[in-house]
Design a protein around this nucleic acid. Sequence first.
DNA 1: AACAATCACGTAAACGTTTACTTTTCTTGA
DNA 2: TCAAGAAAAGTAAACGTTTACGTGATTGTT
Lengths: 335, 335
Amino acid sequence: MSSTIKDVAKQVGVSVATVSRVLNNLPGYSEETKRKVLQAVEELSYQPNAIARGLVSKRTQTIGVLFPSVSSSFSSEILHGIEDVAQNHNYSVIVCNTAEDGKRTMKYLQVLREKQVDGIIFSSGVLEPEYYEAVRAMGIPLVLVATKSDFDDVPYIKVDDRQAAYDAAAYLISQGHREIAMIGGGESDLIAGQPRYEGFRQALRDHGLPLREDHVLDGGFTFEGGSRAAERLLTAAPEVTAVFAAGDEMAIAVISVAARLGIAVPEQLAVIGYDDLKLAEMSNPPLTTVAQPLQEMGRLASEKLIAMLGTGQPAASEVVPHRVVERQTVKRRLR
Amino acid sequence: MSSTIKDVAKQVGVSVATVSRVLNNLPGYSEETKRKVLQAVEELSYQPNAIARGLVSKRTQTIGVLFPSVSSSFSSEILHGIEDVAQNHNYSVIVCNTAEDGKRTMKYLQVLREKQVDGIIFSSGVLEPEYYEAVRAMGIPLVLVATKSDFDDVPYIKVDDRQAAYDAAAYLISQGHREIAMIGGGESDLIAGQPRYEGFRQALRDHGLPLREDHVLDGGFTFEGGSRAAERLLTAAPEVTAVFAAGDEMAIAVISVAARLGIAVPEQLAVIGYDDLKLAEMSNPPLTTVAQPLQEMGRLASEKLIAMLGTGQPAASEVVPHRVVERQTVKRRLR
DNA sequence: AACAATCACGTAAACGTTTACTTTTCTTGA
DNA sequence: TCAAGAAAAGTAAACGTTTACGTGATTGTT
């Protein structure tokens, strides 16, 4: 069907080696033949076959990216960043939806191995030892984004969750709030769950506020879970004037429930979220939240991985800055 | 590093052909050797090299998917569907962010060609003749999702935009509204813009309502554009009691602006969106909208493409059903 | 018992590149 | 004018599979 390097060589009357050389800008041919080769390439509309090239070069210019859920706003923001820098460095990205399923993840890892990807980015989930072992066995670089692991040879790009949660709570306190609740993602989530609870608790402690355990709930990071938690919280504890939701969707759930219950946000209840997803600014009222630079994190992960591919050197982890972006769900509380 | 088919052949003491046969379930070996081969595969933890295989089989088990923006909620929902069925059929997907840029799209098409993908899915954008020609040249199947084209040999999966918009307007009318405005994506967008305007206008006409052109605006499908349009509309035309926004983000913008202007939704103003993105149900109040089954559309596109890969036959286009999902931004208007 | 058919396997070419090595041609300096 | 060195090019192996074809052993048929 389409033409090969042999066709080009034949047409010009040189060997395939020569064609290969001009195509790869290696030395060893005259200007004259270069011209002729390029012309033949044009005429035959020749395109190199990356598969054949990959077979010999052992480089596929492809990276694999694993997400627990490709359709979440969170993941797709990261993906966007990854894709962009990958594309600029002539890498393609294969997306993998693990659905947080071990079996599926392992299967994907195998596929990525068979497809000989040059490197892997693993996003927002727990890097099980089994996974780690699998990619170690394939001998290619791995970088984590929006998560971390105990394996100190695998670099991660991440916000300081504990500190970010601390800052969220501190911000609420600075705005005059004293009765502050939190809806988190569950203590059992060691990456995005626990650390945020810890940061939150530490902030209260540091500011001399009592820690009421019935004010810290589990919303499982979902809108529905957040709704249920908010419902429980807002009906059982009318004294709270502010809530920190460790995820924007849960924060928005709080706002919705508050609206349903006739509680005005931010007048009667302040809400601060976490992530700064696209929907945060579309929320009504616009959500104050602590932002993670998701797209930038994706870019960094991609850059880091590609750097490792180039140098063969391990890269350092990076803690990226978070910041609270003030919108309209937190209002200064007057005494 | 990792072992090849030769290594397992050597270990068992058979030829690579035999190993290949047992691995591919072809006939031509005894149970005995099968056992030994499988055991050796296990011991050496052999994994076939898909690149080498692809070189001879001319199948890479990979498809390319082009999106104008991978991080939009819209795209990622479709991607999710595509990825899921692809994975179930042992295909991998390479995501490409075209950023609605012709140059970039063409470059990507070339990369996909070089990487020898088996097929391509093109999502939600205009299939320029140039693009069409490029994939035709590579001789692989192409399917469109959330868009269509004039090339009748390329199947598409799509909602009937005109009808969907018609139904949105008709729904508003059925709820007692008479002064209805629309914020669309711009007349120049022949795929998702114009048809919806047409459907909207037709519905008004069919129900004997006057068509006020100053009530139909362009929000460019973005939240910001929607905000500006809503601002203009709501201040200049207080008589409108309902607005149809041809995209959920724009609909949410309308709600936000209304809130800012002290207009109660749905009591004083009804709003209906389009798409049924994730954020529609998280909106406050939850957004009534006409739903496109985005994930399902992705699945269908994937299935269609894979079917074409299997049979070599062209597939038929499919118009998928939309439906208005009633939430809380439209209230029956009493006379 | 002879022959055909079947089975279990091996051989080697092919896929489209890259690249180490070799050969031919050209240039240059004495 | 010639040798040496550089430049331009060719040859062929290699990458890891699949697969068409060939071959010897076994089985089945009469």
